[in-house]
Design a protein around this nucleic acid. Sequence first.
DNA 1: ATACACGCGCTTTTT
DNA 2: GCGCGTGTAT
Length: 766
Amino acid sequence: MSNFTAGLNPRQAEAVTAVGGPVLILAGPGSGKTRVITHRIAYLVAERGVKPWRIMAVTFTNKAAREMRERVDALLGEAAHSLTLGTFHAICARILRVDGGAIGIDRNFSIYDDADQLGVAKRVFSELGVDPKQFSPRAVLGAISRAKNELRDADEYARAAGSYFEEVVARVYRRYRDYLQAENAVDFDDLLIRTVDLFTGSPETLAKYQQRYVHVLVDEFQDTNVVQYVLVRELARGHNNLCVVGDPDQSIYRWRSADIRNILNFEQDFANTKVVLLEQNYRSTGTILEAAQGVISAADDRPEKGLWTENEHGLPVTVFEAQDDEGEAAYVVREIMSGLRSGQHPGDYAVMYRTNAQSRAVEEALVRSGIRYRLIGGTRFYDRREVKDLLAYLRLINNPRDSVSLARAINTPPRGIGPGTLNELSVWANALGVPMYHALQLLLAHDLGSGEAALDRPPPFSGRAVRPLLRFITLLNDLIELAQREPVADLLKELLERIDYRRYLLDGGDDGEDRWANAAELVNLASQYDAEALDVARDLDADDEAPKEEIQRTALAAFLEDVALVSDADEVDQRQDAVTLITLHAAKGLEFPIVFILGVEENLLPHVRSLEDPEQMQEERRLFYVGITRARERLHLSHAMRRAAWGTAAFNDPSRFLRDIPPAVTTTRSRAEGHLVSRAATLRRQLGAAPNVAVAPAAAAQAGTNGQAESAFQPGDRVRHAKFGEGIVVSAAPRGEDFEVTVAFKGNFGVKKLLQSFAPLEKVFA
DNA sequence: ATACACGCGCTTTTT
DNA sequence: GCGCGTGTAT
């Protein structure tokens, strides 16, 4: 018996000790998956004598990687340090830093995020004369990304292009690829694809990694895409010890090119696979599991797989019907308040939803009630303008060919280099066939601003704003020089000084102070990346025989890489005692004692965009399943009759998925809003936010009846408006001398237009 | 060159 | 309500 199987159930123990050949662990939610992986690693190292640096463990988020690292540390101590553990993207980035040279990627490459990609795409659009209104750059980038994730390169795509759209995509794809290559940059997809390219183009490199990694483990295998599958397959070819863990029922990233077949066909793809099923759930009450089972077993095309628990039955799942999204939010807050009074903590609660936009109503209600909360998603720290400004400088220092960063930094703060000058510079650099940074160096070296070109000289620069350009390149050169010897934080401080960034922010508006605080926070974050800290890491590894090249990251590159690869899910800190607001997607892998799932409605969950495609519909179902199975003790589901959604009031029916939950495990609640007057007041206050809600003057309200104002309209009545068609009465109440009726119309009507062309409402008795 | 006002289309999910 | 591109005034 092993030290690392103590306390595990027989199936878990089997999963830990099944060594030699491919292993597929099908792990239901709450079945102790992370425990199994970490124990397996510990078992391999401590009892099978595998060197930690010969093990690669891949996760989907940095947070999962961190957690795993902590738990392996707890089992093995510092021996675990040389384990290769990270996300696909982080591991690939590391491989490319070390070996990317073989396919023309310098080790200081930039990682372009969505916004950077969009910048390049727009540049390409304008150069190719593609109208961004005809084809949205985002859609084109989406097509490129999908192609990449199917391992189709630009040339292959061009050959196969069948429609005009695809032809446009092909042209953009090519030039986009060339730009990234010239700028020594990769996008998120490239991190994986270029690694595949590297393995294909340099068999020796592949062989090196194949020999090195005796064991490869992959978590959340159901969410891998084709590229990730190929990577894993190739890496594991060396020793054939591939262990994948996942759950087809929790596959929710199809839209990001994840292919559920990777896990479904694993047994066929890898001969002699050992399959272990983990079906005992340690997380949720029996009731919650029954609800989950009801939802997931209604899915078709699903290998029958059970889930059972010895946990107690627990309280029923509640289903709440709210009047509108505000009522839903108010309900959540009421429930949390009463829970807090009876001893729960804010950190026990999570509020989950399908779309980020849904968080707003809950957030407002929580703010009013003074309950601590934490919003996952939305605007990330690293997406803030001031942070991006500074990162642009750092990226430029790290990789001067990074033209996206150059374009941002060159006129931040404004130094008289507008779009015109930038364009002239770009044209000039193109004519010379050099990166813009290089062109600036030439400008500085030859002072080519005026005078005619000598024979051996480049053509003169035609732009007029030469002085500011020279000032900028001088600044940049100084900073690059500084970066050789100063820690990142000091470099940043010097940068802030040199560009007088504080002044710039403070002059920029009322939020200047906040922005400056963010800049300071960035310096703070950077200070964790000084050379000393990296040296410590180096020493820790020094006593092992682990290859040293792993650690050859400069502090600046390390900082930039980590910054580029953090995700929203990484922010979830469950130690913080606050209510968590999170999308269903981001909630994967987490658990909470009490979970609310909002908007369990048609058009939202399942989402409108998935109604036509049965495959997508299945995915929506699985998403709901993932949400349900996050709950340990209590699960609250809710849906609203009416929901404000950008300009259109939506009237959604309860989700079809609710019908799949056994009625025996639910209790249904609803709350008729008792105080119509205050409701009307609230709605009136919100007119700006919900422009399709019109407040009918008393005269109009009364027009529908014979002076019996009070009984004229009731909430829920259907009404007709001469101009705007049918609507629904949201509230109706006496208001002083008047009678106020609030009506919501379908469609996108500005409130001003509505009120201007007011016509009497007529009650519809159909 | 820059600052600001206006209109338009929009976001489902994210490494 | 939002960010973005466009147009206008300084």
